[in-house]
Design a protein around this nucleic acid. Structure first.
Lengths: 139, 139
DNA sequence: TTGCGTGCAAAGGTTTTGCATGGCA
DNA sequence: TGCCATGCAAAACCTTTGCACGCAA
C-alpha cells in the first residue's frame, strides 16, 4: 500500500516542504500551482497533479471528494495526526466548510459493524461525514 | 427550501416521467441525455443540466458526490423511499465503483452519537462511505 | 547509462454560459 | 403580451496524456 517514489527530485522536496507548513488545511491542485507561481519557484502543473497522486498513494496526504463540480481537495496529514493504530475520521460542515478531526471509539464500531454485517471494508481515510457543525446548526 | 419552477414545460414533464420509472437508481446528466437521444425525444443537454439543478433545489432528486473526476450522480427520491423515519446511507466501492444502498438502524445510531457527543448534525443524504465491497475485498 | 520525473501543450470530459428562438400563462 | 425555458454552440473548468528533454541514482 505504501509505495515510495523512486526518485527524490527537487520538485517533490519543495512540494513536501510546503505541505508540512499547512497541516490539516485543505488545498486544491490549483492552490498549489498558484502558490508556487507566486513564489517564483514554479512547478509544472502536471507535476503537481502527479506528485499529489503519488502522495495520496503513499498515504502522506488525503484526497477528499467535496464537490464534483469543483476541484478535488487535498490535506496533508501531520505526523501526530497520522494515528498509527488509531483511526481518524473527518466531519465537514456543509455551511462554513470547517473540517473536524475525530478520534472516537464509537466510530470505530461503525467500521466493525459495516465489516461484520454488511461485508463492507470502510476506508476512513477517504470517508467524510457531511453535515452541520455546532455553530452552524445553532443558527 | 422547496421552490417550484414557474412554468410546466414539456421537457420538464417527460424528464420527471422518466425519473419516476427509475426510483432509487443512480444516473448522471449524461445518462439522461443519452436515454432521450435513443428515444428520439431529445432534450437539449443544457436543459437537462438546468432541470436537474432545479429538481435538486426542489428536493425531488438528490445529487451525490462520488468522484470529482467523473460526472455528478443523481437519484430520484420515490415518495415511499423518502423514508419518513428511515434514513438511507450509501457505501461506494473504491475499486469496482459499485454503490450500495443501506437502511440500517445501527447507522442511525451514528447519527445520534455524532449529534449527542460531538454536536455534529450528520447529513445522510450527502455522506458517502468509501471502502471495499465484499467481492473486491476478497480478492 | 538507465529510466524515471518533469514540463509544455494539447486532449479529454463535464458543466456552464451567451444569445436568439420558441412556448407557457 | 411578457417572461421564462429551450437549444445550440462555444466557453470554462479541472484533470489527464503524449512526447521530448533533463536529472537522479
Amino acid at each position: 500500500m505504501i509505495a515510495k517514489s523512486k526518485y527524490k527530485t527537487k520538485q517533490r522536496e519543495i512540494l513536501l516542504d510546503y505541505l508540512k507548513t499547512v497541516p490539516g488545511k485543505h488545498f486544491t491542485a490549483g492552490d498549489i500551482c498558484e502558490y508556487f507561481r507566486s513564489q517564483g519557484a514554479s512547478i509544472g502543473q502536471s507535476t503537481v497533479y502527479r506528485q499529489l497522486e503519488e502522495l495520496v498513494n503513499e498515504g502522506v496526504i488525503n484526497k477528499y471528494v467535496l464537490d464534483p463540480t469543483g476541484p478535488a481537495c487535498f490535506e496533508y496529514m501531520a505526523e501526530d495526526d497520522h494515528c498509527e493504530g488509531e483511526v481518524c475520521f473527518h466531519c465537514k460542515c456543509e455551511k462554513c466548510g470547517k473540517l473536524i478531526h475525530m478520534h472516537c471509539d464509537e466510530l470505530i464500531e461503525i467500521q466493525q459493524h459495516l465489516s461484520a454485517e454488511h461485508q463492507f471494508k470502510l476506508d476512513p481515510m477517504r470517508t467524510v461525514f457531511y453535515g452541520l457543525c455546532e455553530e452552524c446548526s445553532e443558527k
